[in-house]
Nucleic acid binder design. Structure first.
Lengths: 143, 143
DNA sequence: CTGAATCCAGGAAGATACTG
DNA sequence: CAGTATCTTCCTGGATTCAG
């Protein structure tokens, strides 16, 4: 996934070094994980607890089933989301965050806060399907 | 730039609300600003001080002049980078961060740290043209 | 030195219809 | 309910060439 050419400058998404050892840029990696369409929103909402496919569909209203499935599959392959199917009738599938997925919350929250400030400075108004982040435990709020 | 359709769920990159008021998702906005190719690397390196076009070319080795120019122009249009041309012969152009551009550093640093942990857990090795982030002032290191 | 102009390929994403 | 299957469009980014 995301295989590119192999140059030390953009060693982000999986270049091959001359000696055959692949290296990755942490920032590009992180961006690649949550940069996909709806991914940030999906992860954000799953922070509150597991959701099933139909519930996610309502949250990410404009995503076609195909897109939603793809994003979820990628998040699953990347180890941020886990999928659990229940053998019931009708079928029930629940998506939840892995511990790795949960651990990315501070970054999303930081982006939310910084983005809000940026938008304010640009004279634009905030409005999205995410809910504002909870205040962090004292000490990290200074980010 | 980045005009899309207009749905409250993906109200990230500039949807039009029914009443004509555009709203934006802070997280999508932030991702849009640094998500472009080489943008994170460019901003990261400019943290250390202004750089001219040729210097950036050496840092972002695999970027063609066209791409580098485009990324820089977008960063400039978004208010993160400022461009200064000196009427000399030969021409000299310096790029530097605006205050808004500098203010995004904690987010990049947080992504660097989280991404490093993620890569470690995946058994992959880190290696990129960025330099590891400096330690933050005590208190915010707990991000 | 710092780009601009042009052309092109590949992947991401949208629309629509269908299924176990 | 929770997806798949196709087809198409769009946009990002790459390669190359030329210019002030």
């Amino acid at each position: 996934m995301m295989e590119k050419h192999g140059c030390e400058c953009c060693a982000g998404r999986s270049p091959a070094e001359p000696d055959g050892v692949k290296t990755y840029c942490p920032v590009e990696t992180t961006l690649g994980l949550i940069g996909g369409k709806y991914k940030a929103l999906i992860v954000w909402r799953l922070m509150e607890g597991p959701l099933r496919f139909s519930q996610l569909s309502k949250i990410v209203k404009c995503a076609s089933p195909r897109m939603l499935t793809r994003q979820l599959r990628e998040l699953e392959a990347d180890g941020l989301v886990s999928r659990r199917a229940y053998a019931e009738v009708p079928v029930r599938v629940e998506y939840s965050l892995t511990r790795m997925g949960e651990s990315i919350y501070p970054i999303l929250a930081a982006m939310y806060r910084w983005g809000s400030g940026y938008l304010a400075e640009q004279g634009k108004s905030v409005g999205c399907a995410m809910r504002p982040p909870q205040d962090e435990p004292a000490g990290s709020s200074g980010l």
